[in-house]
């Protein structure tokens, strides 16, 4: 779990749009058809196999291998989903935390105080992104981490507004006497 400061609260967790994982899902879906295509090709090139595989024992064996292929694809899909789900931009009342899961054995975490934010840019480019409302958020800061770039965020304009609200609230908390 992420370690938060004592009185730090999570305001929002922005994840990637579902379209990102749907690409992996479609790929897995296509791979599910691979055994059927393989069988059709085998029977086309080697018709003698048809006689062998018509026997009930071999039908059972083929079903076994097909089910095992589905198990492997199911696990592969969930690995991809875990990778997708663990990429998250966390907005707290103190900072931004960008968590990027790369494969299963690498995790990059970048955090920056809200007070260091200088500029936020949202980029939604392309027909799919425009229609489905997802895009990239770029946060420029004054700190050591010069820039935070998060790809394929769902509803990026709303996330930008949330970050700006959190920034204003943080400024008000740090400088209570300051009037806008």
């Amino acid at each position: 779990m992420l370690e938060l400061h004592e009185d730090e609260k999570i305001l929002y967790e922005a994840r990637k749009h579902w379209f990102v994982i749907s690409k992996a899902g479609t790929f897995v879906g296509v791979l599910m058809l691979a055994p059927i295509i393989l069988v059709i090709l085998l029977f086309s090139f080697f018709p003698e196999l048809l006689a062998i595989f018509s026997e009930p024992k071999f039908i059972a064996a083929s079903s076994f291998f097909a089910a095992s292929w589905l198990v492997i694809l199911w696990v592969i899909f969930f690995v991809a989903w875990t990778d997708y789900y663990l990429d998250v931009l966390i907005i707290t009342d103190r900072r931004l935390i960008d968590v990027e899961q790369i494969g299963l054995f690498r995790r990059d975490i970048a955090s920056m105080p809200l007070s260091n934010i200088q500029d936020i840019t949202v980029e939604v480019a392309g027909v799919t992104r425009t229609l489905l409302k997802f895009g990239d958020i770029q946060v420029q800061t004054a700190g050591q981490t010069k820039e935070l770039l998060v790809h394929d965020v769902a509803n990026p304009e709303e996330v930008k507004q949330l970050i700006m609200s959190a920034y204003s609230a943080d400024k008000a908390r740090m400088y209570p006497g300051l009037k806008p």
Partner: peptide, 20 residues
């Protein structure tokens, strides 16, 4: 298949519990 399932499920379980 059991080995592949067991190893990858174990790793994913770790991630689901550990990372929020």
């Amino acid at each position: 298949v059991m080995a592949i399932f067991g190893i990858l499920t174990g790793i994913m379980n770790f991630h689901w519990k550990q990372y929020g």
